[in-house]
Each structure stands twice: as structure tokens, then as C-alpha cells.
Design a binder for these strands. Structure first.
Lengths: 141, 141
DNA sequence: CGTTGACTTCGAGCGCGCTCGAACTCCTAG
DNA sequence: CTAGGAGTTCGAGCGCGCTCGAAGTCAACG
């Protein structure tokens, strides 16, 4: 029997079975083929779409817009300019986020450095006036 | 009168007044000083925290955890190791997202290239059999 | 035959992060 | 004295993206 069961797909793609059915219900995924028992059989094409959807989600594209995008893709080649515009838009947004993330990383690194500096200072001053390292360590409070 | 009104802060920081009060309610912001009329007066310190909160939010830290973090910060220097651990954690997550974003960007760029190729092909084939570029340009459709 | 178990559909529910609006208090201007 | 406007508190509501669970169907097993 060709295709993958929903369980296999969920596992392989790292998405819940519930979410897979939800995506289909919402029109993000074209109706998946069903075996004679009524169970879904996902094709390679379906897997490709799922990957695409995951990528697009990651760029911040909302479900609603993904539905529209999928509809465009199914509507034929004359929708290519529009699809292009949509992707270009989310590419722009992605670039913005990437730039922000670089700032966020910088911020975190500065904070972390600062905290590490504080730690060093505290470690170096537990018994500040103990004057040189003559005494053996005593655990504090 | 010292400090900034909620309106000023909302505008300057790019956050809604509702959200500002919400943050305070949720303990993300220490209780903001109030003028004699009961209106909030945000200090420079408050602004600093707001910036920090926005940064942290951007890394994906949920509100609940931000509350905890703020509580730690107010609890004194002995919480520095814990704060450090929290920030390090979100730094890791941020790095993951940044790596994913690079893949997402690649994906989008490949798709965009592909679509642009399709467009060229379509533009070049309205009258495919027109054979070589002898005729002057005619605007299509 | 009955049980098990994996699937199906369907609608309801949830956690998050705000967002909104009603009802109230103050201050200021006319 | 009244009207307007900007702030306050409070609880309810919302949009999103799932997530869950009840109820049913079907195939295989012992």
C-alpha cells in the first residue's frame, strides 16, 4: 500500500496528528487520499507541502494566509505573480526579524557578560577582608 | 513633574497603553509611581525595564517566565546565577531560531528564484513561435 | 464472537497575550 | 456649574493555533 499513515507522517515531520487533520480541514493541505479503510495515505507530494507549510509558518505567515497561498498554487500558473508577491513579503518580514534577532543576541550577550562579572566579583569577595588565601575554605551560611 | 505619562511611553516605546497596564498588573513591571492625580509617571528605570521586557519577549520568553525573572531581579544579587541560567537558556533558543531563519530564508530565495524563472518563461512564450528577435517590442496582452 | 487498537469526524475547549469597554475619578476650560 | 478629556480599575472578550475527547467505524487477533 502506497503512501504514509498519519502516524508515520506525524512522527517523521514532527507535527501532531491532530494538527495534520486540522491543516487539512483548514484547506492548507489538499484532501489527502484515503485507503479502502478510510484511513489517510499521505503521498510524497503531501509531505512536500507539509514541509513547505512548516517553513512558511516559521516565517510568521498566519494560517489564513497560508490557506490563500495554497489556493493560489492550486489555481494554476497565472497566479505566480501573486504568489511571488506573498513570498517576497514574508521574506522581507523574515529579514526584519533576523536583524532584530541579532540585536537581541547582542543584548543577551551583554547581560550575560554583566552577570558573569557580578558573579566573579561575589566569588572573589566572600570574606573580602580575610586577607590572602591562608585559611582553608569554610562553606558560608 | 518628573517622569513620562502613559501616553508618552506608549508612543515612544511602541506598546499600547493597555499592554503597559497589563504588564504592570502581571508583575512584569514594578508598580509605577503615580502623580497626585493618580496617573502613572514612568521613570527612566521603568523605560529601561520596558525595553528589556520587549527584548526578552522577542526571544520567545513567555510572560509567565518574564514575571519570574523580574521577581528574581528584585530579590537581590544572590539570584544572579539563576537569572544567568534563564538568559542563557533563551540565548540558546534564540540561536536555534536564528539558524532556522537562515534555512527559511534560503527556502524562500529558492522559491522566489523558481517563480521568477517561471515568469520569464511565460513572458518569453506568449507567441513562442515568433522566431528570433526581429520584431520590435510589443507590450504583451 | 468479542476485544483491542488505530483510525475517522466533529465540535468544544484551551493557553497565550493582549484588547476592549464600562464605570468611575480628576482636572481644566468656558 | 457643566462639559470634555485623559487617566484609573476591573473583568470580560478575542484571535490565534492548535488540542482534546466523545462517539463511531473498521480490520485483525485469539
Amino acid at each position: 500500500m502506497s503512501g504514509y499513515s498519519i502516524d508515520e507522517v506525524a512522527e517523521r515531520m514532527g507535527i501532531s496528528k491532530h494538527a495534520l487533520r486540522y491543516y487539512e480541514r483548514e484547506g492548507l493541505l489538499a484532501p489527502v487520499a484515503k485507503g479502502s479503510n478510510g484511513h489517510r495515505r499521505y503521498s510524497e507530494d503531501d509531505l512536500g507541502w507539509i514541509r513547505t507549510l512548516q517553513l512558511l509558518r516559521g516565517t510568521g505567515m498566519p494560517i489564513r494566509e497560508m490557506r490563500d497561498f495554497v489556493a493560489l498554487a492550486h489555481a494554476g500558473e497565472h497566479t505566480i505573480p501573486e504568489r511571488l508577491a506573498v513570498l517576497a513579503h514574508y521574506r522581507d518580514e523574515l529579514l526584519v526579524r533576523m536583524a532584530q534577532d541579532r540585536e537581541r543576541l547582542e543584548f543577551l550577550d551583554r547581560k550575560l557578560d554583566y552577570y558573569r562579572g557580578m558573579l566573579e566579583a561575589r566569588d572573589a569577595t566572600p570574606e573580602d577582608v580575610a586577607r590572602d588565601a591562608s585559611r582553608p575554605a569554610a562553606s558560608s551560611r
